[in-house]
Amino acid sequence: MAYSDKVLDHYNHPRNVGALDKKDPNVGTGMVGAPECGDVMKLQIKVNPDTGVIEDAKFKTFGCGSAIASSSLATEWLKGKSVDEALAIKNTDIVTELALPPVKIHCSVLAEDAIKAAIDDYKTKSALPAQVGAAV
């Protein structure tokens, strides 16, 4: 299968590879997929609690080149967006940007799911009352 130049670029120079501190209340972590299916994506966002803007995003992906490119692109797009803007990212945007062939559409779906899972995790965490220093 021939890959688009953009997929190759993300594969060869993945953006924002790494990990954020899972325990940080401002960090949301989403992990989707399964090793048996051949792809697992872990996507993390760090949100500024005052502005609600995503300040940082990191990913790690086990999967084919298109899965790596989809998640790398997702982290690029997430940075600087508000949480609500981030929720508006659709898998079809990723398909168009990376020129993914039909057999690779599931990679873009996985990336969208990872974004949503990370945001869910962040929202769940930030809705909890602060544990430290809570009244006895």
Binding site: G33, A34, P35, E36, V40, K42, K60, F62, H106, V109
Partner: peptide, 24 residues
Amino acid sequence: RELSPLWEMFKEGVDLSKVEWVAH
């Protein structure tokens, strides 16, 4: 492997067979 979340978990000592995966 630098890119792989599974490798990271393996290195952290997570038993991958015990993880509940969100299969799609």
